[in-house]
Structures are given as C-alpha cells and as structure tokens.
C-alpha cells in the first residue's frame, strides 16, 4: 500500500473537504422555489378550479364562517367607497410585500380574491399560487357580478326549473342579509332564510412530513 500514493481515506478526505469548503463558503439558498410549474398553473386555470361561486361566498358570509377571508385587490380609494363585509384591502401592487407573505402563508383560512371584474384577482391568484400558497380562490365575476347576482337578483324569466327558482330565492335572501340594493353592507349581518348550500370546509393541501422512528 505504501507505494500507492492515494489510499481510499485520502481520496475521501480530499473530496469531502473540497465540497465542505464550497458549501461553507456559499450563502444558504433562501430563494423560495416555485412550488408549481407553469404547466400546473395552466391546468388549474383551464379547469377553473380557482373560482368560487358568489352564492357560496354569500353563504359563508351569512354564516360568519371564521375561515373565510375576503381580499379586495382594488386600489385603496375604491376599497374605502365600497367593499364586501369583512374584506381586507390588499391592493394588487402590494400583493408580494412581506406582510402579505405572512398573511397568506398558512393552510387554515380560505382566501377569496376579488376586484371589479376577475382580471386583476386572477393575476393575483396566479402569483400567489406560484409561491405555493394554498386555499386561494377568486370570486367568480368579481364585484360586478356580485352586485348583479347577490345584491339585485333578477327573477328568472319565463318557464324556469326549480333549480333556477331556488337559486333566485337564495340570492334574494342572501342579498337582503348582506345589505342588498343600494346600501354598502354593515357589520351587523343577521342570517335570514335562504337555501343552505353546503359549504366546503377549507382543507390544507400541503402535507406535514412525518419521520423519525416513532
């Protein structure tokens, strides 16, 4: 062995020390890798899973669902004029700030993004999903559709199915409960009638890692 210049131990020592010095010298990688690929986002967009129906949101509002958190993506001045009950204002250009990261980085609450339409809420949704946050939804149709569907529902015209009629009744009830028509919603919301739509409990998607020997 003496004549051979490299024993396995020497080779290992050289290799480990080199790599060790490199890893000690480089800063720790703190960039949060994108949790979803562009294709996964596209798939979700295509299937429209991000949308939540106004009826469901209204139902949750009426029931004062503690897990619901409405996020208003419009500029602050518009938010101050009118907003949905319990909503907080996160203007679109502030969506990536550190405080918002703390807000979104959890698995418990259901977030519902809305703007006047859906364009801006969808853009915010894409950003948040790429960062790996879960339970982010977009209110279908935004405020425009909300006003039409919940606050001032039109009775279905002509011959309608029972489903349509039931939906109309529900919207009317919820609209009244949420201060329909002309008034911005107050805090004092009392549940009235209206068809109970089953509300899906929010669920965390990210798994907790198990491990160890226990």
């Amino acid at each position: 062995m003496k004549n051979i210049s490299f024993t396995p131990r020497m080779l290992l020592t050289a290799g480990l020390l080199t790599l060790g010095v490199i890893i000690a010298a480089v800063p720790k990688n703190t960039t949060k890798p994108y949790k979803l690929s562009a294709k996964q986002i596209l798939d979700e967009l295509k299937s429209g899973t991000q949308y939540i129906e106004p009826e469901q949101v209204a139902q949750m509002l009426v029931e004062k669902d503690p897990f619901l958190q409405l996020i208003d993506t419009r500029p602050q001045n518009e938010f101050e004029k009118f907003s949905l009950p319990g909503a907080i204002n996160v203007p679109f250009d502030a969506i990536l700030s550190d405080e918002q990261a703390e807000l979104f980085d959890q698995n418990v609450r259901t977030f519902v993004l809305y703007g006047n339409g859906t364009t801006q809420a969808n853009e915010a949704w894409m950003l948040l999903r790429q960062l790996g946050y879960n339970n982010i939804n977009v209110l279908r149709g935004g405020l425009n559709y909300w006003a039409e569907a919940i606050l001032n529902p039109n009775p279905p015209a002509g011959i309608t199915s029972n489903d349509d009629l039931a939906r109309y009744n529900f919207r009317k009830g919820a609209g009244q409960a949420l201060g329909g028509g002309e008034q911005p919603a107050g805090n004092d919301v009392k549940p009235t009638g209206g068809q109970k739509a089953p509300v899906q409990p929010p669920k965390g998607k990210k798994k907790k890692v198990a491990g160890g020997c226990s």
């Binding site: 131990r9 020592t13 480990l16 020390l17 060790g20 890893i23 000690a24 480089v26 800063p27 720790k28």
Partner: peptide, 22 residues
C-alpha cells in the same frame, strides 16, 4: 453558525477520526 460551516466542521472532525481509526 451557518449549516454549511457546521458541515465543514463535521467533515474535519470525521476526517480526523478516520485517521485515528486507521
């Protein structure tokens, strides 16, 4: 200390132990 630096220290300790072991 950083994880990288600790790993380097661990490597140095291991290499010294291997030397002692042989």
């Amino acid at each position: 200390i950083t994880e990288g630096l600790f790993t380097l220290l661990m490597i140095i300790a291991a290499v010294l132990m291997f030397w002692g072991a042989e």
